[in-house]
Design a protein around this nucleic acid. Structure first.
Lengths: 349, 349
DNA sequence: CTGTTAGCGCATTCAC
DNA sequence: GTGAATGCGCTAACAG
């Protein structure tokens, strides 16, 4: 049972397909009011729905915006997705979603899939990786991107440019991860802690590396010596897994009369860490301070309230599509350090 | 700068477009191995990417799966979305995402948009509303759905069927909200509480109503008298807003030597409620018990650990696309009551 | 202002 | 096994 076509509507209204097309869609040519009404009535009575594929083919613009995320169930990405979805709707576009497990190889495939659909714009929210073993895939991703752009596509990256060469046509919604982490380091460096530790993701994860680096700079600004760095998975379980090691270090430090503050490079890791520490018999902030990054909405009611860095996630998503579509220029978003109870020692309580 | 077309590849390889099509896509006809290689080489060197729009038009199958959710940033929906995305990928489909603010009117528009794109299947994860004022929109949604189905589309609903008539062609991934809530009521009814309260969403929200209803049945099963019902928004802020009223009731009950247990019909409301109660100076579970529903992953580390009902969210998403695509038959998912610390009184501690 | 004619890029009958 | 022809549904020049 095939769908109703424009031709059928036209015949039913006693006009040509061209005329029907003109009235049913916003064209320059304005058909006579009387004839227009007849067409609209025919379309209505037949239950006509335009075939978006055919429209896209004919006018070579798909009305689609592609979004690639690592994991849509991760609140960081789902918040961005909300912004993308909202902006897309306002621009009369529909969102195509692809979740990769992370990594440039899969991202390249996503870009290819979006290119095949002739998406008007692509937003990549996944994190960049500059590990040597990803170099080839990054290169391939860049090539795929270049091809997409050459064919008239638009692209915006959330966070940071691609490692290596960056096609200037690719817009970037910059997230000042380093600067914000630095500010966080400075602030926490001013608190009454003695030792600092960073629980980071694996090396080569740009976001993780920049946050780590910035935090160290901030500590230095505050006249502190560098934090030790522990590497683990960039998610909740990674934080949880790091707990035993951190606990041991904290206890040792404690015995020496020193207080420890841990910076987990994202909120989910921080939450996992706190959970793991709880199992180790340590409590935050009584036994140590813990800070995160992102200010995930779902975790706002978490106790102890988590010191973190707020990022305008939804806004970042909006900006990305508007920038990609040419309705806004590439910008750097602003975030802010939010000190909460998780880094307040007993003295503050 | 137009994209490379199949025709160009064919010419480059010195074959006809038909042959090129046959080798570049899985066709019945198997071109000669030698000629096939030539075509593949040409495609590769030209950077050919098939135009999915054109393919869709020609073979009238889009390779698209539409997903409609209320709010992609809500962890309930984003978990489902992960399942949908994963299953879609396995079935070589791409996900089209539309977020509605909830309500059948917007859902109808979403279905129309998906129908226009000729999606192979549509998954609706948003919650049903059977308020009288939504009756007309529900009717329109049903009609839109019928039209989509008549045109060869497939649809799966997560949760419950549409209010009113339900086209049998619409598959439903049933979520036993009532039964699970009943089980929860039964279990909590067996705990040492005296009064029960349900913090529900507005009336007419099917999910909320069924959970409320089931919980009441469970209490009755346990020989308890019905819980009072408070209506508020179906989200975190709704739970938060309900806190003052609940706090007052709890205090009154407490003065009479009675212990209260509150069932918030979803986890986010429960978390908001707990946060609000904290501001009121009440602590859980010391001063009252609180339970939720859904077992949102991001909230697993929340303290006090929340008594809730676990739902296989990701699995529900997977099942929905597989069922819609015809690779699985409509089924009822299974959940389970998870008693945690938030409903354990001091006696248990 | 309306109707006619061509494609958009591809898959798929048919002939060969 | 391969190529030529046709049509998917629609829009955009063209004429009229």
């Amino acid at each position: 049972m095939p769908a109703v076509t424009l031709t059928e509507v036209a015949r039913r209204a006693g006009v040509s397909p061209a005329t029907a097309s003109r009235v049913l869609n916003g064209s320059e040519r304005k058909p006579a009011a009387e004839i227009a009404e007849r067409v609209r009535a025919a379309a209505e009575s037949l239950g006509y729905i335009p075939n978006a594929q055919a429209q896209a083919l004919a006018r070579s613009s798909s009305g689609l915006v592609g979004l690639v995320v690592n994991d849509i169930a991760d609140p960081y990405f789902s918040s961005i997705a909300r912004g993308v979805q909202a902006a897309a709707r306002e621009h009369l576009r529909t969102v195509l979603l692809i979740g990769t497990a992370g990594g440039p190889a899969e991202e390249r495939r996503a870009v290819e899939a979006f290119a095949a659909r002739r998406t008007d714009a692509i937003v990549i929210a996944g994190s960049r990786s500059d590990r040597p073993q990803d170099a080839a895939d990054n290169e391939a991703l860049s090539r795929e991107t270049a091809r997409y752009l050459a064919n008239g596509g638009h692209m915006a990256l959330i966070g940071h440019p691609f490692p290596g060469d960056q096609d200037p046509a690719v817009r970037v919604i910059s997230v000042p991860n380093r600067d914000l982490a630095r500010e966080l380091g400075r602030r926490l460096g001013g608190e009454p802690f003695d030792d600092y530790v960073v629980v980071a993701g694996r090396g080569g994860l740009v976001t993780s590396d920049l946050r780590t680096e910035g935090f160290q700079q901030g500590l230095a600004d505050a006249g502190r010596s560098p934090a030790g760095v522990v590497r683990t998975d960039f998610d909740r379980d990674g934080g949880f897994a790091a707990a035993p090691g951190i606990a041991a270090a904290v206890r040792t430090a404690h015995d020496a009369g020193r207080r420890t503050c841990v910076f987990a490079v994202n909120d989910r890791m921080a939450i996992g860490l706190v959970a793991g520490l709880r199992e180790e018999g340590l409590r935050v902030p009584r036994d140590l301070g813990v800070a995160g990054f992102d200010d995930i909405e779902t975790l706002r009611d978490f106790r102890p309230a988590l010191t973190t860095v707020r990022l305008p996630l939804e806004e970042m998503g909006r900006l990305a599509v508007e920038t990609a579509l040419g309705d806004a220029s590439p910008a750097e978003v602003t975030g802010s350090v939010v000190l909460r109870r998780s880094t307040q020692g007993p003295a503050h309580t």
